[in-house]
Amino acid sequence: MPMKLARTAFAALTILFLVAPLIAILPLAFTSSVILTYPVPSWSLRWFEELFTADAWRRAIVNSLIIGTGTTLLATVLGTAASLGLRNRLLFFRGSMRTLFLLPMVVPAVVLGVGMQVLLAGFGLTNSYAGVIIAHTVVAVPFVVVSVTGALAGIDERVELAAQSLGAPPATVFRRVTLPLAMPGVLSGAVLAFATSLDEVVLTLFVAGPNQRTLARQMFSSIRENISPAIAAAAFLFIAATVVIGLIVVLSRSMLAKRR
């Protein structure tokens, strides 16, 4: 019994440790004060108002959505294609190829950022949406690859062979069998890609111009300039968005699972 109690306590402490920063910042989003400190004098929504009316913040939110959407599309398509390619048993060095796709996960973002800036400058893509989307895609693809590869591994290859034998040409097998079965993985991959883009600061610092300031980037710079509670409000938005996305994933997964 004491063992069980200790275990529960430990779990509770771990969770507290993980969410403590959120607990610290969230109430400040609703402060009426102009500085980001406790105690909260009184409650108000002025900082959310600020977020949606002040030009810099509004543009940052829109930019985040544009870049996040672009990254999600590009990374999901590329990552899914890569995962399909990695399935081929005849591929030489399959293991090493796979590792290569996951590399951006472990390479320090600063290193990637420098490289990316040099590279994009060569193509004249710095300070452009396309450049930021490409940069974000590089770090988002590994998440898609991991997620889709997992889903593909769960597909019985003989189901696809059966489809062929029943008269389906390869493209139809993909559309009617492989893709629907891999869909849960593709969806989680897409969500992870979006979250990655939303969260990305380092690469954005290197490749984005003043017109591509994302929400994360804007928070980062405003922290140095003036510590206004707008940051807390932005953080609240972030968390709310994440929770919503998480719910969407869980729901769509259970819906897909039910269809089986």
Binding site: D156, R158, V159, L161, A162, L166, P180, L181, R260
Partner: peptide, 14 residues
């Protein structure tokens, strides 16, 4: 144009 039946059934689960 051949019908194939596998040991693992290989039905389309979706």
């Amino acid at each position: 144009d051949m019908g194939v039946v596998f040991q693992s059934y290989a039905l389309f689960p979706h």
